Amino acid sequence: MNAATGFMSGGKGFGEILNRLRANPKIPLLVAAAAAIVVAMVLWAKSMVTPIFATLIFD
């Protein structure tokens, strides 16, 4: 028996996960907030890499 068959035969199914999410609506909210923070940080870091050449040329 490997890990894949142990995961598929026993443990929590997708329905159990959905029941937990319905019981505690804060979990999807926390996941969405964390994803938004990660996206904001990636976009902010990306904007810091690109130099603004217009100020370098026209100064």
Score class of each variant (00 low, 15 high):
residue 44 W to E: 04
residue 20 R to E: 15
residue 40 A to G: 12
residue 48 M to P: 01
residue 48 M to I: 04
residue 46 K to V: 06
residue 14 F to I: 14
residue 12 K to N: 08
residue 49 V to I: 10
residue 57 I to A: 06
residue 52 I to A: 12
residue 25 P to R: 11
residue 5 T to Q: 10
residue 7 F to A: 06
residue 23 A to Y: 05
residue 39 V to H: 01
residue 17 I to W: 00
residue 24 N to I: 03
residue 4 A to P: 00
residue 41 M to G: 05
residue 42 V to F: 10
residue 7 F to Y: 14
residue 35 A to T: 11
residue 24 N to W: 01
residue 50 T to L: 11
residue 26 K to D: 15
residue 17 I to N: 03
residue 12 K to H: 07
residue 55 T to S: 05
residue 29 L to N: 00
residue 33 A to N: 04
residue 35 A to F: 10
residue 53 F to E: 02
residue 41 M to N: 07
residue 29 L to V: 09
residue 23 A to K: 09
residue 27 I to W: 01
residue 49 V to C: 05
residue 47 S to M: 09
residue 37 I to H: 02
residue 27 I to T: 03
residue 47 S to W: 08
residue 13 G to W: 00
residue 46 K to H: 07
residue 48 M to R: 10
residue 11 G to Y: 03
residue 7 F to H: 12
residue 20 R to P: 00
residue 59 D to A: 05
residue 3 A to Q: 13
residue 11 G to A: 04
residue 56 L to H: 03
residue 27 I to Y: 04
residue 4 A to Q: 10
residue 41 M to S: 06
residue 23 A to M: 08
residue 30 L to R: 14
residue 22 R to K: 09
residue 56 L to A: 03
residue 9 S to T: 12
residue 36 A to E: 09
residue 15 G to F: 02
residue 35 A to S: 14
residue 15 G to L: 12
residue 26 K to I: 09
residue 2 N to A: 14
residue 31 V to P: 05
residue 37 I to N: 07
residue 32 A to M: 15
residue 14 F to L: 12
residue 59 D to Y: 02
residue 51 P to R: 03
residue 28 P to M: 01
residue 16 E to A: 15
residue 3 A to N: 12
residue 5 T to R: 11
residue 23 A to C: 02
residue 37 I to M: 11
residue 28 P to I: 00
residue 9 S to R: 08
residue 11 G to V: 07
residue 13 G to V: 07
residue 43 L to F: 09
residue 50 T to S: 09
residue 13 G to F: 06
residue 42 V to K: 14
residue 27 I to H: 02
residue 57 I to M: 08
residue 15 G to V: 13
residue 25 P to W: 11
residue 31 V to G: 13
residue 8 M to P: 02
residue 53 F to Y: 08
residue 46 K to P: 08
residue 15 G to T: 14
residue 45 A to I: 00
residue 53 F to Q: 06
residue 12 K to F: 11
residue 40 A to Y: 08
residue 32 A to I: 12
residue 38 V to S: 13
residue 42 V to C: 08
residue 44 W to R: 03
residue 17 I to V: 08
residue 6 G to M: 15
residue 33 A to S: 12
residue 24 N to Q: 02
residue 43 L to T: 10
residue 26 K to G: 14
residue 52 I to N: 10
residue 24 N to D: 09
residue 54 A to W: 02
residue 46 K to R: 15
residue 2 N to R: 14
residue 39 V to Q: 10
residue 10 G to Q: 06
residue 28 P to W: 01
residue 45 A to S: 08
residue 55 T to G: 07
residue 25 P to E: 04
residue 15 G to C: 05
residue 30 L to F: 13
residue 2 N to V: 05
residue 48 M to G: 06
residue 33 A to V: 14
residue 39 V to M: 13
residue 57 I to W: 07
residue 55 T to D: 01
residue 40 A to I: 06
residue 57 I to C: 05
residue 40 A to D: 04
residue 27 I to F: 02
residue 21 L to D: 01
residue 20 R to A: 10
residue 24 N to V: 02
residue 44 W to Q: 03
residue 15 G to A: 15
residue 45 A to F: 01
residue 52 I to M: 09
residue 7 F to G: 14
residue 47 S to I: 06
residue 38 V to G: 13
residue 4 A to I: 11
residue 34 A to E: 05
residue 56 L to Y: 04
residue 19 N to W: 04
